[in-house]
Simulated assay, not measured.
Amino acid sequence: MPGCSTRTTLQLVGPTSWTEVSAALRYDSGDPFAVRIRFGGRAEAVDGDDAGSGVEWLVARDLLHAGLSRPSGDGDIRLWPARTPGDVLFLELRAPSGHALFELSRAVLAGFVADTERLVPRGQESEVVDVEPELVALLRCERPDADGR
């Protein structure tokens, strides 16, 4: 399945200083509702399936689209534009172990979201997902495949 990815640098907002954090955004049209954000790790993990590097979060593509222009998200993932004009968005991630606040470029995220929408236009995600084989397996009470499907 086609996909797209981009690398960027986010600023981890700390109480007294900010720290640069490398990140990679990855979209796969086979999972059209989601975007993966990998923080840190090796560069080759962006295009491969090297789950051992960095930390990865799964984010709804609609949340990223909405967060470009207004506060978006509830709970673990929130995104909103800065109140001042410019190229700044804030991304907050919450986990049981704590939370992190990042500053990122609106232009970089907007470009990436536009790339994903060229692959699968918004509102057409369900046309790309082939759920029929999954439903047939569930209705027959078949066991999942070895890969968890």
Rank of each mutant, 00 (worst) to 15 (best):
A60K: 00
G67V: 03
L68A: 03
G123L: 06
D130W: 06
V88R: 14
D87L: 11
W80R: 06
L89M: 07
R83N: 13
G123S: 06
E20F: 14
R38W: 06
P144C: 08
H65Q: 05
S126F: 01
H99D: 14
S22Y: 05
P121R: 03
P133R: 07
L104V: 11
D145M: 06
T116F: 07
T16Y: 12
V136K: 00
G86H: 12
T19D: 05
H65I: 04
V113F: 15
L12Q: 12
L104N: 02
H99I: 09
L91F: 11
V136R: 00
D76W: 08
P96M: 15
R42F: 10
L104R: 03
T9D: 12
D87W: 15
P144G: 01
E103N: 11
L93H: 14
G123H: 05
P32R: 01
F33Q: 04
D50G: 09
Q11L: 12
A24Y: 01
S69T: 09
R26H: 13
D62R: 00
G40R: 00
A45C: 05
V120G: 02
L139H: 04
F90I: 07
V21L: 08
F102Q: 08
G54D: 04
F90A: 14
D145W: 09
D147M: 00
P85I: 14
V13C: 14
G52Y: 08
P2L: 10
L79V: 11
C141W: 00
R7T: 10
L10Q: 06
V59S: 02
L139S: 02
W57F: 09
D47R: 08
R140A: 13
L104D: 09
